[in-house]
Amino acid sequence: MRKLLMIVFVCITALAQAQLTSKEEVAPELAAKREAQKKEITSNYLALKNNLIASDSLAVITNATALQNSLKNFRFKKLSLEQMNEAAKTRKEIIALAAEVTSTKNINKQRRIFQSLSVKFWELAPKFKAADTDLHLQMCPMTSAEWVSDSKEIKNPYYPKNMLTCGVVKASL
């Protein structure tokens, strides 16, 4: 009986050690994949903003579609159930707003939708922000319209012809 217990103990210990080693080997890969997802989400949002600055409505549609797709694949981590539900709800709203952007080629309508999308995006920006990225919440003081940028330099996506550099940095991550 003792030998049997000893064999079971050795097997369980070996199995536990194998699982621990497996987790140690996989964790960096998963962390890298998650960082890549965060970069993709942020890049898609920033490309959308930059194409609004360039007044390229077709590129805006492409970026809004890419943003939707990257958000659909993202899973939140380390949140309470209440926080998870709130984050999932906000993500769903961002996806719906991005879909709304893709439904029109009118750049002014795209900009109006982008205002709401930017407010929602900033709510989740701490979850989407890649470790090596700085994000800044910027605002046009004339209209109170907000957007997120990876630079402190102001480039207003709402009025690029008349007020390109009009704005202030409200917050940073």
Results as ranks from 00 to 15, higher is better:
residue 85 N to C: 00
residue 81 L to G: 08
residue 85 N to D: 08
residue 77 K to G: 01
residue 91 R to Y: 08
residue 100 E to Q: 14
residue 78 K to S: 13
residue 99 A to P: 03
residue 80 S to F: 06
residue 81 L to C: 00
residue 91 R to I: 01
residue 82 E to N: 04
residue 106 N to T: 09
residue 77 K to P: 00
residue 96 A to C: 02
residue 86 E to H: 04
residue 88 A to F: 07
residue 80 S to M: 02
residue 99 A to G: 13
residue 95 I to S: 11
residue 79 L to C: 03
residue 86 E to R: 11
residue 80 S to G: 04
residue 91 R to C: 02
residue 77 K to M: 05
residue 94 I to E: 05
residue 101 V to S: 10
residue 100 E to P: 01
residue 97 L to Q: 12
residue 105 K to F: 06
residue 86 E to W: 06
residue 80 S to W: 01
residue 97 L to G: 00
residue 91 R to P: 09
residue 102 T to F: 04
residue 85 N to V: 09
residue 106 N to H: 12
residue 81 L to R: 10
residue 81 L to F: 07
residue 81 L to Y: 03
residue 80 S to P: 07
residue 103 S to F: 03
residue 77 K to W: 06
residue 100 E to S: 13
residue 104 T to P: 01
residue 104 T to S: 15
residue 78 K to V: 06
residue 95 I to K: 01
residue 99 A to R: 10
residue 84 M to E: 12
residue 88 A to R: 14
residue 83 Q to H: 11
residue 84 M to F: 10
residue 101 V to D: 02
residue 106 N to Q: 10
residue 88 A to N: 15
residue 87 A to R: 06
residue 96 A to G: 11
residue 102 T to D: 00
residue 92 K to F: 14
residue 82 E to V: 08
residue 77 K to E: 13
residue 93 E to N: 13
residue 96 A to W: 08
residue 86 E to D: 12
residue 95 I to H: 03
residue 100 E to G: 13
residue 89 K to G: 12
residue 81 L to I: 08
residue 81 L to S: 14
residue 88 A to S: 15
residue 99 A to Y: 03
residue 81 L to E: 11
residue 98 A to W: 05
residue 100 E to F: 04
residue 98 A to E: 01
residue 86 E to Q: 08
residue 95 I to D: 09
residue 87 A to K: 07
residue 104 T to V: 02
residue 101 V to F: 04
residue 92 K to T: 14
residue 101 V to N: 03
residue 92 K to A: 15
residue 97 L to M: 10
residue 99 A to C: 01
residue 104 T to E: 01
residue 93 E to S: 15
residue 79 L to W: 03
residue 104 T to Y: 01
residue 102 T to G: 05
residue 79 L to E: 07
residue 94 I to N: 03
residue 81 L to W: 04
residue 85 N to P: 00
residue 97 L to V: 02
residue 87 A to E: 09
residue 93 E to L: 13
residue 77 K to F: 03
residue 105 K to R: 03
residue 90 T to C: 04
residue 91 R to W: 09
residue 103 S to H: 03
residue 98 A to Q: 00
residue 89 K to D: 15
residue 95 I to P: 04
residue 89 K to H: 15
residue 87 A to M: 09
residue 93 E to F: 07
residue 87 A to N: 10
residue 97 L to T: 08
residue 77 K to D: 07
residue 102 T to S: 15
residue 94 I to S: 04
residue 103 S to C: 00
residue 106 N to M: 09
residue 81 L to M: 11
residue 88 A to G: 12
residue 92 K to H: 15
residue 99 A to N: 12
residue 98 A to R: 10
residue 97 L to R: 07
residue 92 K to M: 14
residue 90 T to D: 07
residue 78 K to A: 13
residue 104 T to A: 01
residue 97 L to F: 05
residue 99 A to T: 06
residue 99 A to D: 07
residue 83 Q to R: 08
residue 102 T to I: 00
residue 96 A to Y: 07
residue 88 A to V: 14
residue 79 L to D: 08
residue 98 A to Y: 12
residue 105 K to A: 08
residue 94 I to V: 15
residue 106 N to G: 01
residue 104 T to D: 00
residue 82 E to I: 06
residue 96 A to Q: 12
residue 79 L to G: 00
residue 83 Q to W: 06
